[in-house]
Design a protein around this nucleic acid. Structure first.
Length: 646
RNA sequence: GCCGGCGUAGCUCAACGGUAGAGCACCUGUUUUGUAAACAGGCGGUUGCGGGUUCGAAUCCCAUCGCCGGCUCCA
């Protein structure tokens, strides 16, 4: 495996990090230290817990090692000698396991710099003196081999660049990215709130954030009408049996909110002294009737005998819905369908709830309750390719409209070694092919990733990075041959026989919460006019202009523009400053001159003072900018800093 | 869930064993303003919640909740 020069530099930095750590903490047991996209890390097992002060000390030691200008020397050895080297250095705890990973017949190499020697395939820079710009960034926990049943090690993250300037630039970039963090902007611009009394990962949309979301929903709804979708509404809960039929329960029990058990059952259970374990079994269990039905439809023992209990043993209850599909399926199944009706497309902004582990929650991007811009398409097998392409074009429309170009496309296929997938493999092959072919039409590079499929079918995901480089799946299109079988869906074909439809699940935004989180960061809070919660603010330069200001305010409101009036008795500069901080796209300054001429002085956030314009003209301009969903002009000024006074 | 760090006024932060403070925001006056901060006064905190140590706790200890960075997970 060859490394780029930058990776080589960073990987060498991780060796120097290990060298420094062993100098200060000789008892440290090393695991691995690879380069990453933005730097490097080393995983270390040590009783002493590293602190921020330790990082400073370690970094100083690393500088010394760089100054010592040690050469990196490669040494290839036979396996037995490798083992002996590792033992002699007291590093057998993890390194022997890493040695065992190297296949027989492959070269076993060590790299030595100074007194330090590490099992390593390489490659490296030639001398430590080339490490001129290294910075240790953070300490984190990480499981050995990424397996949570293994011991958790301490991971030290750092980064390195060829020059000090590049490092400084990178660190500045990191700082600036933090200013755009949706959690920070969400608070500053009053877009959303998370309250611990309401619960972790549950978003409260404040008025400003609600405008943003509503605008996006209106936008997508308009696109859906053009594409022949039907709006539906469904409740937030469904009976357990529904999810036992779909297969979502109990397979995903750990990532669902626990079921709501009916009161009668609860009373009964309490009086009968039912144990927790027994209760859990009886909730998970499936009736004889349902098991037989599902097994017959799927043609195999999908629901095993050990999950079946007699009806009087079953505990009924409801589940907060973890997805909308079963509800939409039931709408489809509620009426007979002819091939002439297909495709049937049901759309709903459907709110779902999932029990994410507390440590995984993150602002709006990883939450426990979220609203998918969901839809389910029911079509014939022949219609699948065209429908997938239709869905993809919708996602593209969305991303293009918002100027989001920095995303990647992932075709999620099943993992051939896993048994979590339902349905027969011929259908899987068809569905995977349809996805692959549709992805090719996108005109965007995509990767095929085994193991990324949903349990019921393959999918095409749009993945976008947040300001600190974390990837989030947004839009998704999934092909499903399985749920139609489980729910015994059918339509009458031209041959007057019953046929099985194919389902497509799709959500161009993914979830409103995650999408808005990413969107806030994408725009850094400087939303295009059509999305800005407050589009225009009127700034009278004195109270004497209030009458004119109020008339103007009414006029803009009548034109359906989100406008406010700053009636504080502050100087103009203060009003402008406030509007800038709140990232209001346009301010209209009015003084006597403007009032006399039925005009306004326009100041845009992007360009500053744009001069005096007639009221009718400025309204027309705003309306046009809103209806075309124009993207904001990039500001030249760096975010967060005021322009210098001249 | 796990490892580590952090919770002080609406916001950003100070006080680090000895009477909880500043700026901004907000309210009230004064000011009537021309493109990024007028002036004065006022309101506002059982220091996340609960225990403990101490003459005395925001500060030290324990527990719990929440947040942050990773890890694991993500239908």
């Amino acid at each position: 495996m060859s490394m780029t020069p930058l990776e080589e530099l960073r990987h060498s930095a991780s060796h120097v990090l290990a060298t420094a750590i062993l100098r200060i903490y000789p008892d440290a047991k090393l695991d691995i230290g690879p380069p990453t996209d933005s730097g490097f890390y080393y995983d270390i097992d040590l009783d002493h817990k590293f602190t921020a002060d330790d990082l400073v000390k370690i970094e100083e030691e690393m500088k010394k090692i760089a100054e010592e200008n040690q050469p990196f020397i490669r040494k290839e050895v036979p396996r037995a000698e490798a083992e002996q080297i590792i033992r002699s250095r007291g590093q057998e705890r993890y390194k022997l396991g890493r040695l065992a990973d190297i296949p027989e017949g492959e070269a076993i190499s060590f790299y030595q710099n100074g007194e330090f020697m590490d099992l390593c395939a390489g490659t490296h820079i030639r001398y430590t003196a080339k490490l001129k710009a290294v910075k240790l960034l953070s300490i984190a926990g990480a499981y050995h081999r990424g397996d949570e049943t293994n011991k958790q090690l301490q991971r030290i993250y750092g980064t390195a660049f060829p020059t000090k300037e590049e490092l400084a630039n990178y660190l500045t970039q990191l700082e600036q990215a933090k200013l755009r963090d949706h959690r920070k902007l969400g608070k500053e611009l009053k877009l959303f709130h998370i309250d611990e009394d309401v619960g972790q990962g549950l978003i409260l949309w404040t008025p400003n954030g609600s405008i943003l979301r509503q605008q996006l929903q209106d936008f997508i709804s308009g696109e859906l009408r053009k594409q022949g979708y039907s709006q539906v509404f469904t409740p937030h809960i469904g009976r357990l049996a529904l999810y036992k039929t779909s297969g979502h329960f109990p397979y995903y029990k750990d990532s669902q909110f626990p079921p709501v058990v009916e009161r009668d059952f609860l009373d009964q259970l309490i009086s009968s002294g039912c144990s927790c374990a027994e209760m859990s079994n009886r909730i998970d269990a499936v009736s004889v009737h349902l098991a037989e039905k599902v097994n017959k439809l799927t043609g195999k023992e999908t629901i095993t005998k050990d999950r079946v209990l007699p009806d009087d043993q079953l505990i009924d209850g409801f589940l907060l819905k973890p997805m909308n599909c079963p509800h939409h399926i039931k709408i489809f199944a509620s009426q007979p369908h002819s091939y002439r009706d297909l495709p049937v497309r049901f759309a709903e902004f459907g709110t779902v709830y999932r029990w994410e582990q507390s440590g995984e929650l993150n602002g709006m991007t990883r939450v426990r309750g979220f609203t998918q811009d969901d839809a389910h398409l029911f079509c014939t097998e022949e219609q699948v390719p065209k429908e997938i392409i239709g869905c993809l074009s919708l996602v593209k429309t969305v991303l293009t409209t918002l100027g989001m170009a920095d995303y990647r496309v992932r075709v999620g296929l099943r993992d051939p070694d896993s048994n979590k997938y339902t349905g027969d493999s011929a259908n899987w092959d068809k569905a995977e092919n349809a996805c692959r072919e549709a992805a090719k039409t996108l005109g965007v590079p995509f990767t095929e990733e085994p193991g990324e499929a949903a349990f019921y079918g393959p999918k095409i995901d749009f993945v976008i990075k947040d300001v600190i480089g974390r990837e989030w799946q947004l839009g998704t299109v999934q092909v499903d041959y399985n749920l139609p079988v489980r729910f015994d869906l059918s339509y009458i074909g031209a041959d007057n026989a019953s046929h099985r439809p194919v389902m497509i699940h799709r959500a161009p935004f993914g979830s409103m919460e995650r999408f808005c989180g990413v969107l806030i960061e994408h725009f850094g809070g400087d939303f295009p006019l059509w999305l800005a919660p407050e589009q225009v603010r009127i700034l009278p330069i004195s109270d004497k202009l209030l009458d004119y200001a109020q008339a103007l305010h009414a006029q803009l409101l009548a034109a359906d523009i989100r406008v406010t009036l700053d009636a504080h008795s502050d100087k103009l500069g203060a009003k402008i400053r406030r509007a800038e901080i709140e990232k209001i796209p346009y301010t209209l300054v009015i003084g006597q001159k403007e009032a006399d001429a039925n005009s306004v002085s326009v100041r845009s956030r992007a360009k500053g003072d744009e001069g005096v314009i007639q009221v009718e003209d400025v309204i027309a301009r705003f309306k046009s900018e809103i209806t075309t969903r124009a993207l904001p002009v990039k500001k030249v000024i760096v975010p967060g800093s005021a322009p210098q006074k001249t």
